[in-house]
Simulated assay, not measured.
Amino acid sequence: MTKIKMIATDVDGTFLNQQRQYDHDRFAQQLQRLQTAGIRFVVASGNHLGHLHQVFAPTPAVQTFVAENGSLIVDHGHTLFQTTIPLPVVREVVTAILADDTIRPQVLRLSGQHGTYINRTDQSNDPASQAYYFNNVVLVDDLTTVEDTIYKINGEWPNQTIQSLAAKLNAKFPQQIHAAASGFGSIDIIAPHMNKAIGVTQLAQAWQIAPSEIAAFGDNDNDLEMLRHVGFGVAMRNGTATVKQVANLITPTDNDHDGVLNVIDAILDQKV
């Protein structure tokens, strides 16, 4: 296998276990080994940046984030790239989704530079999870009046098959958005032609790293493009069938049994 110079990983269902935890001590030791080996570590997630900072606070050496499914790339506090959804498109999509009972979600959110905006009348199916994932909530009366830089529209459809619904959204708004299932009854809607692969590639090019020199981990449909694009795509044992189909490797253990950390050790020990 080509020498790996960069490792990118999804977070929920991938790096984190079902209790939303990871082995801090083991990972901190791996980060030191990665630095010695000249391998960069990158978080590639659909989550907003503030939440990712909280998740990785126990290991402050993690400083590079491809957030919002590639729409926001930050390295050591510096924004390197950002791709937004124009406000007129945001308003058109929000208006259409809320007016159509066949695609209207239980909760619709706008992920912006200054907050995550939610209509104050929307009620999440899982308030505890909403509080965990969105630590910057701003309640509003009308999402179409929000004035901010918007990276992502996120919806919560707990009782529907989100893969087919994502396809329906893409067909309804061609060339305007890119919708992808992100797990847990959630769909992320970002700028057209944007995904984690684009974000990871922009970062790698800035570091003069080729796609063949990247390993990436993922478990869900918003990881598909990233796993296809890199030289060594790794699907989680607990991942979706579609992700496993495009991967070079399926982790021997799942996210509850250090699946990512075990493969990172294998990469460092040159056993894969």
Rank of each mutant, 00 (worst) to 15 (best):
V146M: 01
E147A: 11
D148S: 01
D148K: 03
T149C: 13
T149Y: 06
Y151F: 15
Y151E: 00
Y151W: 05
K152E: 02
I153S: 09
N154I: 01
G155K: 06
E156T: 09
E156C: 05
W157G: 06
N159L: 14
Q160V: 14
T161L: 13
S164N: 13
L165R: 11
L165C: 09
L165Y: 12
A166Y: 08
A166C: 03
A167T: 14
A167W: 10
K168T: 07
K168P: 01
L169K: 08
N170A: 02
N170I: 03
A171I: 07
A171H: 13
F173N: 03
Q175V: 08
Q176H: 12
I177E: 12
A179K: 04
A179E: 06
A180M: 07
A180C: 00
S182Q: 01
S182V: 06
G183C: 09
G183L: 08
F184I: 13
F184C: 10
G185P: 03
I187F: 01
I187E: 05
I187G: 04
I189V: 09
P192H: 08
K196Y: 13
V200P: 02
T201N: 14
T201A: 15
Q202Y: 08
Q202I: 02
Q205T: 09
Q205M: 02
Q205D: 06
Q205L: 03
W207T: 04
W207H: 12
W207D: 04
Q208K: 14
Q208H: 15
I209Q: 04
I209M: 05
A210W: 09
P211C: 05
S212Y: 00
E213Y: 12
I214H: 12
I214A: 11
A215I: 08
A216H: 00
F217N: 01
G218Y: 07
N220L: 11
N220S: 14
D221C: 09
D221G: 06
N222Q: 11
L224Q: 02
L224R: 00
E225F: 07
E225S: 04
M226Y: 01
R228E: 05
R228V: 01
V230D: 06
